[in-house]
Computed example of a mutant assay.
Amino acid sequence: MEFKDYYKLLEVDRTATADEIKSAYRKLARKYHPDVSKEPQAEARFKEIGEAYDVLQDPKKRAAYDQLGERWRAGQEFTPPPEWDAGSEPASGGAYTEDAADYSEFFSSLFGNFSRRGASARAQGEDHHAKISIDLEVAFQGGTHAVTLRLPQVDAQGRVVQRERLLNVQIPKGIREGQHIRLAGQGATGIQGASPGDLYLEIHFHPHALYQVQGRDLSLSFPVAPWEAALGAAVKAPTPAGVVEVKIPPGSQSGRKLRLKGRGIPGEPAGDLYLVLDVVLPKADTEQAQQVYQTMARELAFNPRQALGVS
């Protein structure tokens, strides 16, 4: 997917005011309108500048777009960075709006659930959405956590600036990735005294050093020595709730999964923790270690490729 430089498409600077952006759009729209323009590829160009204007005229979309910074060039291969919109209000993602149906893949990857503003705006304040990331441990403990959101705001000169908003959010114990927390009345202000909208926080977990998350279940790549895998052993394993003793069955191989029931994210029912065994070989970096391996090769006469029909 190619990166689109919306400022370049509208032929304005990144510091352009709202009025400057509107003026540039009107000029280019007249030039490339497919009903009157004789410019080559006028229709495609008209759609591009319309898409660019849709983003840059909307303070929220423009602020989110500006988070990507200036390190991307037009036409460069692009993938949205992980958590690029975390803390932004509203978040990207979701379904196409009817207005955005003809827009580019680039637009949809960033602004899927944004919709154009116009005559359909209601008196009641809009609901806002934001993506926040928390540590996995928070799902086991719950509690109140401070969350900083970035809000776009138009200053007196018509430029979009970021304003930070600090909220103390109650995170329930057992929350899963992808769940939403609703903060009633914390969305956009209503018009002419109407009630404000709500703020929905979509929960994501920071990458964890040990555990992979799927729903309420966790998995952990668990290293074992060859003799522990071959003969069986009782070993200690970490879990988010503390260290437990685990029995390794004799004859275990790499990839075998051991299920620790109820050791995943709390809930009704709680998730499980899966230990994925990884047989780790000692290094043969001493003469004694090399002699041990040579003895094994001689006395065990083990061919791991026998099932492949080769010796």
Rank of each mutant, 00 (worst) to 15 (best):
F78H: 00
P269A: 09
L258H: 05
S115E: 12
G118T: 02
A119E: 11
T79Q: 13
A270E: 03
K47W: 09
A52L: 08
A95L: 07
L151I: 15
H180V: 11
S23L: 08
D19Q: 13
A156E: 15
E48I: 01
T79L: 14
W84L: 00
S115W: 14
K22V: 07
L110P: 00
I175N: 01
A74D: 15
G142H: 10
S115Y: 15
E51F: 03
A230Q: 08
K8V: 03
V244Q: 13
L258P: 05
A42S: 11
D127F: 01
G112Y: 07
S23R: 03
D217C: 10
I21E: 02
L201R: 01
H145G: 07
A123R: 11
E48T: 05
F222E: 02
K27W: 07
R26E: 01
K4H: 09
L9K: 02
L218V: 11
T97K: 08
G118D: 08
G87Q: 07
P80E: 00
R30M: 12
P152A: 15
G143C: 12
Q291V: 10
R216I: 01
Y211K: 04
V213A: 05
K283T: 09
V138W: 06
E98G: 08
Q288V: 11
L275S: 00
G185W: 01
L201P: 02
V276N: 03
